[in-house]
């Protein structure tokens, strides 16, 4: 359900810990609707953690997260998720079509079977990502780029309002990259909100409306042109992290 008075995603004073060690500190965020947002930051900055926390996959140490004014749990239907490619076993005996159909499972509901409509949507998503011709292939027989497209098609099949993508550009070929860009633009044109974790600063510069720079806390969040400056990049990628890291270690030690 979309409550228009609320931002698509809002985080208030969110701290997330892994094994009691804080990896994100006091994050305050209001993601605007209908924008393409890039999340950048060095390794271990908590980018994936942020995405997983929004998806409701991780417990919060403090603060709250709302999706259109409600908890992520209540809003499952409108959150689409593209996890990192390594998160699943690609030897799993499922075909491309099967995986994309999994995106519909939330809508289909427990025990019930997929309907004709579900199949049509899956077909359309395959088409959109240009992988219809591999629909019946087992997923290990795909290239890295094709595998990424399968994940994107699956997220598309969720028919969500908000998409959270974890490093979709890692290990993909140029053709897939431009296919993903095209898809991102189309989602944006449909008024969807898309949050993309990105590694590559070059591409980040040109693709996104807004950039969120993260390094264990929000460094800056704003329109790409304003924040993609050497000063902010330096603040995100250069030093200063050490104290936060040391403090996190102290918290972990204190709590055993």
């Amino acid at each position: 359900m979309i409550l228009k008075n609320f931002p698509p995603i809002e985080l208030h004073d969110v701290t997330v810990s892994y094994h009691r060690r804080p990896v994100l500190w006091n994050v305050d965020l209001k993601i605007p609707e209908g924008k393409l947002i890039g999340v950048i930051g060095p390794n271990g900055a908590g980018k994936s953690t942020l995405i997983k926390a929004i998806m409701g996959l991780l417990p919060l140490s403090s603060g709250w997260i709302q999706v259109y004014g409600k908890s992520a749990k209540e809003q499952r239907g409108i959150l689409g998720y593209v996890p990192q490619k390594e998160s699943v076993d690609w030897d799993f005996p499922v075909t491309v079509k099967d995986v994309v159909m999994m995106g519909r499972y939330g809508k289909i509901g427990l025990i019930k079977r997929a309907s004709k409509q579900d199949r049509r949507i899956v077909g359309a998503c395959l088409e959109k990502l240009g992988i219809s011709s591999f629909a019946d292939r087992q997923i290990s027989q795909l290239s890295g780029g094709q595998q990424q497209r399968v994940f994107l098609a699956r997220a598309l099949a969720q028919e969500s309002e908000i998409y959270l993508m974890d490093e979709p550009f890692v290990g993909v070929d140029a053709a897939t990259e431009s296919a993903i860009i095209l898809l991102l633009k189309e989602l944006k044109n449909q008024g969807k909100t898309v949050l993309v974790v990105n590694h590559d600063l070059q591409t980040a510069q040109s693709y996104y409306d807004d950039i969120l720079m993260l390094n264990m806390r929000v460094v800056v969040f704003g329109p790409t042109r304003q924040v993609m400056t050497t000063e902010w990049l330096h603040k995100t990628y250069g030093g200063r992290l050490k104290i936060l890291t040391d403090a996190a270690a102290a918290v972990e030690n204190a709590q055993g």
Partner: peptide
């Protein structure tokens, strides 16, 4: 099948 293949997605879909 879904929980075997991708438990994280399953969790986020409310399975």
């Amino acid at each position: 099948v879904l929980t075997s293949f991708d438990p994280a997605l399953a969790l986020s879909l409310g399975v």
